Structure formats: C-alpha cells, structure tokens
Simulated scan of single mutants.
Amino acid sequence: MAYDIEKSDAEWRAELTPAEFRVLRGATDEAPFTGEYTDTKEEGVYCCRACGAELFTSEEKFDSRCGWPSFYDPKDLDSVEVKQQRSLFGQEAPVVQCARCGSYLGELFTGEGFNTPTDKRYCINSLSLRLNPADGE
C-alpha cells in the first residue's frame, strides 16, 4: 500500500532511536508496563512518533491494566488502519498501523468486556506515540 509518507529503512533509522525503529518499523512490542504512556493521565493528543499524525486522544484512553496504553477508539477512524491478524500470547489480534506512514502501533482486541463505548481495546506501544499536551506545551 502506498502511504502519504514513505521512507527507506535508512531514512527511518536516521530519524528514530533504535528502540523506536524496532517497534515502529520492525513491528515488535515493547515490554509490558515499561512504556512512558502506560499509566499517564495527562490530557492531549497522541501522535505517531514516526510521522506526527494525530492518532488517539486522552479522552479515548482507559486503564485496561494490560501493560500498554489502551484506547477504545482512534481520534479519527481513518487515522489508523487495521491489518492482518497475528498471534500474541496465543490470541489472534489484528495489527494496528498508522494510516499516514504505515508504522506499527500495536494490536486491536474486541469483546473483552471493558466498560467502554466500543468494547474495543487498541493496545498501543508507548514507543509508537508522542503525547502533545492539551495545554500546548
């Protein structure tokens, strides 16, 4: 698929830290309970760390206690794309990517019984995100 932002691996490596590259471009997950946004309650917009696209807001973030930031919906439905399933801890889960640059964000789980408007859990790596605080700092 063609994305609005396309770069070579060398270009991505020059812009991202090794850990960010491993997650965003290598489609691996950071260790649970280690990400900077797992427990944050700060208000704002979560953007793709690779390209800056607005993906999620603090309004959709909820505490799932899964070890990664969780959102029940993206900011705009067309800001992320959901792709093929992969096995995570023996459970099949669709992969979530940034619709603007194709970077890996995490997985999508449904039907887990969380008290959210959508009963969806976008389980997203902190290393895939950058929080732009609501106060503009």
Score class of each variant (00 low, 15 high):
78 D>K: 13
125 N>G: 06
70 S>K: 01
127 L>I: 03
102 G>C: 12
131 L>H: 01
31 A>Y: 03
45 V>N: 07
133 P>H: 05
49 R>Q: 09
54 E>W: 04
137 E>P: 04
112 E>W: 01
27 A>R: 06
79 S>N: 12
29 D>S: 15
89 F>I: 06
130 R>T: 14
34 T>Y: 08
30 E>V: 09
78 D>L: 05
55 L>M: 15
74 P>I: 00
105 L>W: 00
109 F>N: 03
81 E>C: 07
55 L>Q: 04
108 L>G: 02
60 E>V: 10
112 E>I: 06
79 S>P: 02
92 E>T: 03
5 I>H: 13
98 C>P: 04
64 S>P: 01
136 G>S: 10
55 L>D: 06
58 S>K: 07
134 A>M: 12
87 S>V: 12
117 P>D: 10
111 G>S: 12
7 K>T: 11
11 E>F: 02
99 A>W: 00
112 E>K: 08
68 W>C: 07
126 S>G: 05
83 K>R: 15
118 T>K: 03
42 E>A: 15
95 V>S: 09
116 T>W: 01
69 P>F: 07
114 F>Y: 15
126 S>K: 08
127 L>C: 03
33 F>P: 07
30 E>A: 08
130 R>P: 00
52 G>A: 08
39 D>K: 15
122 Y>H: 14
122 Y>D: 04
94 P>H: 03
41 K>S: 14
55 L>V: 09
70 S>V: 06
92 E>K: 11
104 Y>I: 04
49 R>K: 15
101 C>M: 10
54 E>I: 02
59 E>A: 15
111 G>I: 10
16 L>R: 07
51 C>D: 08
75 K>R: 15
106 G>M: 02
70 S>W: 01
35 G>N: 08
26 G>L: 09
98 C>K: 05
17 T>Y: 04
74 P>E: 00
5 I>F: 09
72 Y>M: 04
59 E>N: 13
57 T>E: 02
22 R>S: 13
134 A>Y: 04
121 R>C: 02
128 S>N: 02
82 V>T: 13
44 G>S: 12
135 D>I: 09
100 R>V: 10
67 G>C: 08
72 Y>V: 02
42 E>H: 01
9 D>T: 05
48 C>N: 13
120 K>L: 08
119 D>R: 05
19 A>R: 11
17 T>K: 06
80 V>P: 00
105 L>P: 00
48 C>E: 13
58 S>I: 07
110 T>D: 14
73 D>I: 01
40 T>R: 05
70 S>P: 07
35 G>F: 11
122 Y>K: 02
16 L>N: 09
106 G>T: 05
137 E>H: 15
69 P>A: 10
41 K>F: 09
83 K>P: 01
101 C>K: 10
99 A>N: 09
15 E>I: 02
38 T>A: 14
98 C>Y: 02
98 C>N: 08
122 Y>S: 00
69 P>S: 09
95 V>R: 03
